[in-house]
Computed example of a mutant assay.
Amino acid sequence: MIEFTKRQQEIIEILKKHEPITAEQIAEMLGVSKGTIRSDLAVLVMTGNIEAKPKVGYFLGKKSLNHMERSEWWHKTPVKEIQSVAVTIDASTTVNDAVISLFLEDVGTLVVVNEDNFLSGIVSRKDLLKVTLGNAQAASMPIQLVMTKKPKVYTVEPDDSVYEAARKLIYYQIDSLPVVKKVNENPHSLKVVGRITKTNIVKSLIEVESEA
């Protein structure tokens, strides 16, 4: 059996009896708000256990893998098996150069590191857009004035499960997570070894489905 939360199991049972059904109707049956079940629905869709159609609602997904196979992949595959290379810059990089890096590398987020490749912060397209709109001086600003600094950056480690990475991406409503290693078990010394994105996860799920 897939290791769903109690609420996710309840959502599947509701769909078995009432599909197709909207998120609002599911939330009403559970006695919670639509926002409360947003991450549950996203996990169930990403794992292929339910599907969604615009203006129709949610219904049970068609799975080419049985429940046990899918559960083993989702919960036992470590992040390091599907992660990609992190696109990094240093804290002195200007906003202008950071914007160029975003477009040249075709990514949504840049990881800010020091000279030893330890995590300093993270900067997204949204961060850069906020600082540049209506600010003629922004282009020459160092990225350290714009970035989200390390204490507030969400990360995963190479041996964390893909499920844990997906949960963080959905819960915190972000597109990517730096993959980091603690050096000498020091929680403040995080060496950047990669990144994992929603695209990484979806592509890997598709590959698993096609091999079934």
Score class of each variant (00 low, 15 high):
I11K: 00
I12P: 10
E13H: 04
E13S: 09
I14T: 00
I14Q: 02
I14H: 05
I14P: 01
L15G: 05
L15A: 04
L15E: 01
K16C: 02
K17T: 09
K17M: 07
H18K: 15
E19V: 01
P20V: 10
P20K: 05
I21E: 01
T22S: 07
T22R: 08
A23H: 05
A23E: 07
A23G: 06
A23I: 09
A23S: 10
E24T: 14
E24K: 15
Q25K: 15
Q25F: 09
I26E: 04
A27C: 02
A27N: 00
A27T: 06
A27D: 00
A27H: 03
A27E: 02
E28N: 13
E28P: 01
E28M: 12
M29C: 08
M29N: 08
M29V: 10
M29K: 11
L30Y: 05
L30N: 00
V32M: 08
V32Y: 03
S33T: 12
S33E: 08
S33C: 00
K34R: 14
K34A: 09
K34E: 07
G35H: 13
G35N: 15
T36E: 13
T36R: 11
T36D: 09
I37A: 00
I37T: 05
I37C: 07
R38W: 10
R38H: 11
S39L: 09
S39W: 01
S39E: 14
S39G: 10
S39K: 10
D40S: 03
D40W: 04
D40A: 02
L41K: 03
L41A: 02
L41E: 00
L41S: 06
A42E: 12
A42P: 00
A42V: 07
V43H: 07
V45S: 06
V45Y: 05
V45L: 13
V45I: 13
V45G: 06
T47N: 00
T47D: 05
G48D: 06
G48P: 01
G48Q: 02
I50S: 03
I50T: 02
E51F: 04
E51T: 15
K53H: 10
K53T: 12
P54F: 06
P54A: 14
P54Q: 11
K55Y: 12
G57T: 08
G57I: 08
Y58A: 02
Y58H: 01
Y58S: 03
F59N: 10
L60I: 04
G61K: 00
G61M: 03
K62Y: 13
K62Q: 11
K62N: 13
K63H: 11
K63Y: 06
K63M: 12
S64M: 12
S64H: 13
L65A: 10
L65D: 07
N66C: 10
H67R: 14
H67P: 09
M68P: 04
M68N: 15
E69Y: 06
E69I: 15
E69N: 11
E69M: 14
S71W: 01
S71H: 05
E72R: 11
E72P: 07
W73K: 08
W73I: 12
W74Q: 01
W74T: 07
W74A: 08
H75W: 12
H75D: 15
K76F: 08
K76D: 14
T77G: 03
P78G: 02
P78R: 04
P78A: 05
V79D: 01
K80R: 14
K80I: 09
E81G: 12
E81K: 13
I82D: 02
I82N: 04
I82K: 02
Q83F: 07
Q83M: 14
Q83A: 12
S84M: 12
S84F: 06
